[in-house]
Amino acid sequence: MLTIGAHLSITKGFENIGLESLSIDANTFQFFPRNPRGGKAKPLDSTDVGALEELMANTTMDVILAHAPYVINLASKSEKTRNNAYELFEDDLRRLDNLPNNMYNFHPGSHVQQGPEKGIELISESLNKLIREDMKTTILLETMAGKGTEIGRTFEEIQSIIENVEMDEKLGVCLDTCHVYDGGYDIVGDLDGVIDEFDSIIGLDRLKAIHLNDSKYGLNSHKDRHEKIGQGEIGLEAITNIINHEKLRDLPFFLETPNDVEGYKEEIKLLRELYEY
């Protein structure tokens, strides 16, 4: 079964976002647990959380993905910025413990001219403090396009963070198709090779989710501009190969394409038609 969903707003509550997902034939969803630019999070409603749990227990929706605010940068040169990022991250993890089967995806950060080695060191240090043994949520490092001083463009950088975290069993990876293609991994011309490289460096057991996006600018552009499915440089044939690949097909896929809810509905319909059951 194809597990696929879109990035939707939870402003009307978790039960409603779950119902909205089902209405567009999605069986998962991604959401921001707070404003993507940071700020205070809205208190959780236990009744609403209970309704989501019931919904997930009675449908094929068995996992959901939270996305960290974009302002989080655990690799920043500024101690104030790092501390703010840490506080937001810690609060999100504490709140997510109250939700059913979930993962927390974040952009590793930008080293801001300190060099990737220093950035990786700072990220790992923070994760060692943030991760709790009793934590229910799995933290996902997202692969990045490599614009500016972003960390996470290469599989080696992602693995360097993981190997410096003590409780690394709490860590996984979210592979973003637009990002890896923009970052230089040719998932169009050599998907098997990219998957094998990921496996040899990080390990496919770490791959927990895929952001399924087309790319506006394409291979090695380092632009990070998502495009609608089949309308970008990755193209529909390659997207079809990705969702049907024997090593990827059972993972949850999350759309972050430039769409409204109706647009997501059409993309999900298309992808379900292309999925080989």
Rank of each mutant, 00 (worst) to 15 (best):
L88E: 11
D205Y: 14
I158T: 14
L251V: 04
D214I: 08
D190R: 08
N58E: 13
I72C: 04
Q114P: 00
L271P: 06
L271E: 07
K129Q: 15
N98K: 15
L19Y: 02
Q231V: 05
I195G: 06
G189W: 09
K216T: 12
L19Q: 14
N35Q: 05
L207R: 06
E53Y: 10
N105Q: 08
L140N: 08
H179Q: 11
R37P: 05
I24H: 04
E237W: 06
V165F: 09
I162Q: 04
N241T: 03
G172C: 11
P69T: 12
S46K: 15
T149Q: 09
F14G: 00
D91W: 06
N83W: 01
E266W: 00
E276M: 10
N128I: 08
V194C: 09
P69M: 12
H7P: 03
I187N: 05
E156H: 13
R82W: 10
T138D: 07
E79V: 13
D192I: 07
L65E: 01
L271M: 08
G203N: 09
N35W: 09
T137K: 05
D199H: 01
D176P: 01
L99C: 01
M103L: 10
N84F: 13
L19N: 15
S126Q: 15
V188N: 06
D91T: 14
A57R: 15
L270G: 02
D168V: 08
S124P: 04
G5D: 06
G38E: 12
L175F: 05
T81G: 02
G38H: 10
T137V: 15
